[in-house]
Design a protein around this nucleic acid. Structure first.
Lengths: 348, 348
DNA sequence: AATGATTTTGCAACCGGTTTCTATTTTAAT
DNA sequence: ATTAAAATAGAAACCGGTTGCAAAATCATT
């Protein structure tokens, strides 16, 4: 194991003090150009790379941003991560990556780790738990919340979200316009703010059509935002006494699960049932049934988050703000007028 | 700005020395259980979280692993990242995430940043440049190379890869068995070791069928592993004097581009031309044309990488090893026997 | 040549932990 | 009761940088 090259080695090689080397590194104070050259030459020759740890200890800044999301392998989050990275990398920030897996205790332990690592800023897609810790953290470190709100007494924060309310509202309207009335919703966990607002978009559209969605409305499935969630939703759908004519899936993973389960049961789209969905579906162009869905301009959102976090680090006193991005509706071939094929085919 | 709580504050509150607090934190040496309780209580009460920076400075370990890939928003890489994360998180390692964007100078600057941040280990999907730097780095820090080799005099390293040679070989065989002879290859940059080995799999299969693929073989397109690469490949294909009967696309992004471009030109699969592909295609189940393709068990590979990097950190003297994972072939509906539809339809 | 202003440089304290070495106390053994 | 061994705790050096303060060197002015 070779010994590490430190600033003192450089100082010795250049016949100057460590102070001078430090000054050359940070080029804040003027250093005689001749001395400077001697120093940079020594740095070059020795291949010296200053230790961020030592720097951080003194300056208490790490040039590191924590990104804590439910699942980094989810294409939405990885696209966001990449977009942020591209922006902040220009100012030499690095990103510490963490997936909570929707597990509050894992989230908490990651948060503590990030504090201990002294990150300069945090971007989090929170589980919803750990509100107090997050609140206190946000008072010390520039913080951005992504997609999900957290409620805690007068906790205000920078918030980036897609307008899920509007997305669901539009999708529901589309179905209603075609005369669908029995619309089955595959919803997400109701402790997630984005699941709630999407659901609200649905109920409001329904209300405008004179349909009240309350406990007695039978076509609601509260599941996880996951493939299995979609599969279970279809199981549940098929157990109902009266069949719905359309499905609103509030999440892309649920949609995939639902499509899979419907195919297994030989239920055709849109002949037997219509479906509309939230969120981007990969390879949508090439799908045999292309669900009508709403998407968001994710790379753009990521870029905005990147700029915002830089701004907030520069000016911590910035007043909190919300950034909500509008849905883009992509019409597919998954919707038609209500039929009663399912009933005729004996599914109900 | 509240002042930070340090180990000295805890020491004061618990009426002990900082040494004792440190001992409680690391519980290596025995501390009287009564004293210990006083200390842990104070830690709890003050919400003290030790600074990793300070710890790192002394111990020169950071519990941080660098993951440097061409593009973290690529689902292959994000799946790998997540899988590694899940494994190493159990031992409290964090992951520093970096995308090179295939840019060697960005790769180098990231590598320097990672060195300066004193990472404990590195997992890299290298651009192929910066071989010397990487070589020297790997002698100081446990390093794993992913998917692409780097050539530098007696540089040996841990290497994880998918057997792309075999994948392309099998796909080509499949086409040859159906009597395809004019097979168009959408290849990748020939400075990438995985592009090279995939291409080799193709040529070897062809050779076995008595077809020599050399400079005079007209059906090779060297592009990028990207959507645009696929589009350009089809442009090129259509400019050829004699049409091929099948396409071997060496990468999923190229495949998507190719499918798109073929659709634009109203070329049907497999009636007009057959296609086979490398790598996972999202939502493949629901595609109207499901390309026959080879995939790899990515989550499993990720897990293995995670275990390996932990092992290597524990035992740096471990001899280097290569881990090559076999392809899994997924038959689709994108292949048929050669036809001369394209010629008849006036494309050629 | 003397004085003051301005550059340029170095000393040493400091950031917040860990660890070596030493001192004190407790326990065990004779 | 005496001594050896083990358990416990603290003082201070250290990790590798940054920075306040002050001194030395250079330059400009009278």
């Amino acid at each position: 194991m070779e010994k590490k090259i430190t600033i003192r080695d450089v100082a010795k090689a250049a016949h100057v003090s460590v102070t001078t080397v430090s000054r050359v590194l940070n080029n804040n104070v003027h250093v005689n150009s001749e001395t400077k050259k001697r120093v940079t030459d020594s740095i070059e020759k020795l291949g010296f790379i200053p230790s961020s740890n030592a720097q951080s200890l003194k300056t208490s800044t790490t040039h590191t941003i924590g990104f804590l999301a439910s699942d980094i392998s989810n294409v939405f989050h990885s696209t966001i991560a990449r977009g942020i990275e591209d922006i902040v990398n220009e100012e030499n920030y690095a990103i510490l990556l963490c997936s909570t897996g929707e597990n509050p205790s894992r989230e908490l332990s990651y948060l503590k780790m990030l504090v201990s690592k002294n990150i300069d800023a945090l971007i989090i897609n929170p589980t919803g738990s750990n509100a107090q810790f997050l609140y206190e953290l946000s008072r010390k470190i520039p913080t951005i919340l992504l997609n999900r709100r957290v409620s805690y007494s007068n906790f205000d924060y920078d918030f980036f979200d897609t307008n899920g309310y509007k997305g669901s509202y539009l999708l529901t309207k589309q179905l209603l316009t075609l005369n669908h009335r029995r619309i089955f919703v595959i919803s997400g966990p109701n402790h997630l703010s984005n699941a709630i607002s999407r659901f609200q978009g649905f109920t409001d559209a329904m209300k405008e059509a004179g349909i009240t969605v309350d406990e007695s409305y039978p076509y609601v499935f509260d599941g996880q935002f996951s493939f299995e969630g979609g599969v279970h939703a279809i199981d549940y759908l098929c157990s109902l006494p009266e069949y719905p004519t359309a499905i609103l899936s509030q999440n892309n993973l649920s949609t995939q699960g639902a499509l899979y389960a419907l195919k297994q049961r030989n239920i055709s789209i849109p002949e037997d049932i219509s479906i509309v969905s939230h969120d981007e579906l990969s390879n949508w162009d090439f799908m045999s049934i292309r669900p009508t869905h709403v998407i968001f301009n994710t790379p753009y959102i990521a870029e905005q988050i990147g700029h915002r976090i830089l701004a907030r680090m520069k000016t911590p006193s910035l007043p909190s703000q919300e950034f909500i991005y509008e849905p883009i509706i992509i019409p597919g071939n998954s919707v038609t007028i209500p039929t009663d094929h399912l009933a005729r085919r004996g599914h109900f």
